[in-house]
Design a protein around this nucleic acid. Structure first.
Length: 580
RNA sequence: GCCCACGUAGCUCAGUAGGUAGAGCACAUCAUUGGUAAUGAUGUGGUCACCGGUUCAAUUCCGGUCGUGGGCUCCA
């Protein structure tokens, strides 16, 4: 039964991608009909829709998109059939030469099969395509063009840049509307917007430079809560906290190999003829600590944990809010262990990840295993063993996972874990990487039970990934409505009149003594105004204090987004909050 | 880095077909002491991102730089 459902789902996805692929053909047809000189790139369906790449000297404007959409609708209304035709490679070459579609010629050249298929629609729109397609253009019921963006031909920087038109298409208008609504919702939840309006953090691009974040007081509290949580949870699991410097001599990075392989991402500085590197990674620092004494097999596994702030030079175009920065802090750990301990360590990390994610309110995780790339370090045998161990760990934990062949780091295979947020979007957070290279480069060793010197295996792992990215993720997941334990400000007390301020202040002291984060709003504003402000600030609880509450020695509780909960006993309310 | 769009007050945005700018919110002061999402009045605040060119005159036109946004590529 379950298999059948999976098959059915797979078929549905296939159908949708066929539909979208057909829609991208209609897009190309419309563009060619309006601007016949335009050259075609490729037009596949993608996860959330489709795109088509065009080469045209003039940029597509928003008005152009509207015009193209109208033309597409006409093509759909005409319900033209998708006609499949087969050619030999030579015939196809001739055809596309006649059509002056240079990019298509390149594609044909890359096709190994002798038989080439093309699809025709309308009067004279012909596209190189292996299909499949829907029978006719009328099958498209709901589509929309979304944006125009630049994209290199074949994704290679030195190739010409084409104009990519993105669009999406669904089987029914309602699904399209839902999708567009979801996009709107995502825009509203944008962590950059919320970060500013909730006064969590800001960027001072002009003054401080780009890709660097400043935590304002509320953001700093949020981050501190997360840091304290992480430290506690790591200590509980047998990790040791370490702290390493932000700059280290270039020679160390030469030993680690970063100086040669990671150079363009590193900030270097020269001081009195001595070159230093602003650390882009924490591993070499942890390795130095490991190397500080002779290690016994009895002391392994050794787990070092650091909230390590790293700096990496990233191209300006890739920077994005908290998600991609030039300076960020990783919840980084390096585990030195025996090879036979690897599996338990990896399973332990997987458990750890699951617990942390559930504590932060994320239920769904996606696992991916990246295997040996073409260029790799270490022996084939050890790679296979490591890949087996990673695979077995995932299987024993009963996690389904996707394999990304050849996507591993050059020094070892890895597991990437992505989390799914409230809008079903995936966020890269945790990664677990085996490393056979660094123990070799730094000549790491331990003494085994027979007194022989052996080499330990090293694991690199992060759970949240970067605190910044994770905070961005949290903000978007919750739409700024952070759960009580993470809310920078948990309670705001509003005395109705100034004469209630003293009692309100006493209550504040009582809550503060319980370790709750409380503020008093004594501003000379109406009650309604102060309630509104706190709601906009997404404060979990508001306490309104007036004549009645003072008389009864109680508080009136208002919960975020839910409204007035009525009058409550103070101690009872405290119990309720601290229980969680 | 590359393609396209954009850059006006702390925030959100109007505006000037070339004659040095305006609203709401925020902030300040005063009045108001209010019972669950905006009390009223007055006021402060801008070398219109930066540099250069064209012009009698540039925030407006042109060029460059920096930055932001959507992508490509890359990634925590």
């Amino acid at each position: 039964m379950a298999e059948k459902i999976i098959e059915f789902v797979a078929e549905k996805i296939m159908d949708l991608s066929t539909l979208r692929h057909s829609c991208s053909h209609i897009l190309a047809q419309a563009v060619k009909e309006i601007w016949p000189e335009t050259k075609l790139g490729i037009g596949p369906s993608i996860e959330e829709g489709f795109y088509y790449d065009f080469d045209r000297p003039e940029p597509f404007t928003d008005q152009d998109l509207v015009r193209i959409e109208e033309r597409m609708q006409q093509i759909i209304d005409q319900n033209e059939p998708f006609i499949r035709e087969e050619f030999t490679k030579e015939e196809a070459m001739k055809l596309f030469k006649r059509l002056k579609e240079g990019y298509k010629l390149e594609l044909i050249d890359e096709i190994e099969d002798e038989r080439i298929t093309v699809y025709k629609t309308g009067e004279n729109f012909i596209d190189l395509c292996k299909g499949p397609h829907v029978e006719s253009t009328g099958k498209i019921k709901a589509f929309k063009l979304l944006t125009v963006a630049g994209a290199y031909w074949h994704g290679i920087e030195t190739n010409p840049m084409l104009q990519r038109i993105y669009g999406t298409c669904f089987e029914a208008k309602r699904e399209l509307d839902d999708y567009l609504k979801n996009l709107e919702e995502a825009k509203k939840r944008d962590h950059r917007k919320l970060g500013l309006s909730l006064d969590l953090f800001n960027f001072y691009y002009g003054e401080a430079g780009t890709g660097l974040v400043f935590y304002h007081p509320k953001g700093a509290i949020l981050r501190t809560i997360i840091e304290d949580y992480l430290k506690r949870e790591h200590l509980r699991r047998g990790y040791q906290l370490v702290i390493t410097p932000h700059i280290m001599q270039a020679s160390l990075w030469k030993t680690s190999g970063h100086y040669d392989y990671y150079r363009e991402n590193m900030y270097t500085l020269k001081i009195e003829a001595q070159e230093f590197v602003l650390k882009p990674m924490n591993c070499p620092g942890h390795i130095l600590i490991y190397k500080s004494k002779i290690r016994s097999w009895k002391s392994l596994p050794l787990r070092y944990f650091e909230l390590g702030t790293v700096y990496r030079y990233e191209k300006s175009g890739v920077l994005h809010g908290l998600l991609r920065l030039r300076g960020f802090t990783q919840d980084d750990s390096h585990i030195f262990c025996l090879e036979e301990q690897l599996k338990d360590e990896i399973k332990g990390i997987l458990d750890f990840v699951l617990e942390v994610m559930s504590d932060f309110g994320f239920g769904e995780l996606v696992f991916e295993l990246s295997t040996r790339p073409k260029k790799f370090l270490g022996s084939l045998e050890i790679w296979e063993r490591a890949e087996d161990i990673l695979t077995e760990s995932l299987k024993e934990k009963e996690f389904s996972f996707k394999i990304n062949p050849g996507e591993g780091a050059f020094y070892g295979p890895k597991i990437d874990i992505k989390l799914k947020d409230a809008l079903k979007r995936l966020w890269q957070c945790a990664t677990i990487q085996c490393d056979f290279a660094l123990p070799e480069k730094f000549d790491l060793g331990f003494i085994d039970s027979k007194g022989e010197r052996k080499r330990p295996v090293m694991l690199h792992r992060v759970i949240l990934g970067s605190l910044e990215r994770f905070i961005g993720c949290l903000i978007e997941h919750y739409g700024g409505n952070l759960p009580l334990w993470l809310a920078p400000l948990q309670i705001v007390i509003i005395p109705i009149k100034t004469e209630h301020a003293r009692y309100a202040s006493e209550i504040k002291e009582r809550f503060t003594a319980e370790g709750l984060r409380v503020d008093l709003d004594c501003r000379n504003e109406t009650l309604e105004k102060r309630i509104r402000d706190s709601e906009l600030e997404k404060i979990p609880y508001l306490l309104v204090i007036g004549e009645k509450e003072m008389g009864e020695k109680k508080i009136s509780v208002r919960k975020r987004k839910e409204g007035n909960l009525g009058s409550m006993d103070i101690e009872e309310f405290i119990k309720r909050l601290t229980k969680i």
